[in-house]
Design a protein around this nucleic acid. Structure first.
Lengths: 215, 215
DNA sequence: ATTTGGAGCAATGTCAACATTCGGACATGC
DNA sequence: GCATGTCCGAATGTTGACATTGCTCCAAAT
């Protein structure tokens, strides 16, 4: 059966909103890696109390976008080469499971195709990277596997950040985004879990070779 | 080089302590699934403020031990059969990566063997399950892969809870814990990542067949 | 010269009071 | 009888003030 026509409203508090604003600022490059995030300052800028900022920072920490130490503070995370290795190995394991599960399920591919179509019309690398992320979001959503989506959420923003930094003005990426992801979507529709898993591995091995090792 | 002789002290606040107490109570069965966790009540019992309890509950939610809805409250999570499926599929993906990575690394196996030795002397199922968890903790620790450990942390307590419920007084488990884990430790030392990954899959397939499907 | 101890400041950790939201009970209208 | 509207108690969401901790600078001792 199709999902219900009206979805439950998103009931969120000030803390979630604060997390969104800070996350956007980081992904937009306005808060560079290593920047200290002082609670009083953020509270003042965002116009909310320090308690809400604290709560929002906890969320961002769970997404790996910031790191914090007891009684010392919170900073925008800096990604070392080791971090990138960790991200790609873990992400591969998750993506393989996601592609296999989605292919086995065999439905809910509509949003995935929509993202691919939007990709074809993207003009900037920033847009392309954002849609790249949304493509994989859609794959994870198609699995219906909540804990898998949660595990992806925990590294998603870090992957996003890394892609933004590495992909900047790389013509190879611009050429390959659409065909690569269109290929993944096609394998999904074919409905062969094994093939879908292999496609995920190759997709990531490709990005790894072309992006990581060129640094 | 070996890890430094003196480790940095664990500097934690009241919130972390509160999370520990509540987690222990849930894993000890004192707080049944579905129980409402009222902030004022917990704050009173624990002797801390509501703010700290709130912060602790966020941690427990990130571990999947409790669920909370906006302006409604927080409850001890109830695990449905679908939840168990999710836990086992995701855990398999993580364990395979962990065993492969640890085998490839080829060091840091000391703590793993220690857990196996402790397992041989365990008297109750509760102890055995706790050591089962610690065994896998040790494997994840041996990988040195922080994000993989973090992903495991996010489902660890749920797996613990499930095992406690299903394993209770099951003679099969009691017989198999030690040989199964000793086998995993041996494969690790062999140093073949591929074999280690397969061993992880079989280890979990075994538990799945023997524990999940008997319900 | 190096190190040790303390004072001051800045930032985070904790708390208790106020504001908001929710769910249910009851009354009202059709 | 069913749906809608309103009130109330209870719980969570939010806030600002107070307590605690860590860093830095500087002086004094070895």
């Amino acid at each position: 059966m199709p999902p219900p026509a009206v979805r439950p409203v998103a009931r969120r508090g000030v803390a979630g909103e604060a997390a969104d604003r800070i996350r956007d600022a980081i992904l937009a490059g306005e808060l560079a890696a290593g920047t200290a995030l002082k609670e009083v300052e953020l509270a003042s800028v965002l116009g909310v109390s320090r308690g809400s900022v604290r709560e929002g920072l906890v969320v961002l920490e769970s997404e790996g976008l910031v790191v914090s130490e007891w009684h010392r503070g919170t900073w925008v995370r800096e990604l070392t080469p080791d971090d990138v290795d960790e991200l790609y190995t873990l992400r591969t394991a998750l993506d393989v499971l996601a592609m296999r599960t989605a292919a086995a399920k065999g439905s809910g591919f509509g949003p995935i195709d929509e993202v691919v179509r939007a990709m074809e019309h993207a003009r900037t690398d920033t847009e392309r990277v954002a849609l790249d992320m949304e493509f994989h979001d859609a794959v994870y959503a198609a699995t219906g596997h909540r804990r898998l989506q949660e595990a992806w959420r925990a590294i998603r923003c870090q992957v996003h950040l890394f892609l933004l930094a590495r992909v900047a003005d790389d013509p190879t990426y611009q050429e390959l985004v659409v065909p690569e992801h269109a290929g993944l979507a096609a394998v999904l529709r074919a409905g062969d879990p094994g093939a879908a898993g292999c496609a995920a591995e190759e997709h990531l091995r490709g990005s790894s070779v072309k992006l990581v090792e060129k640094r």
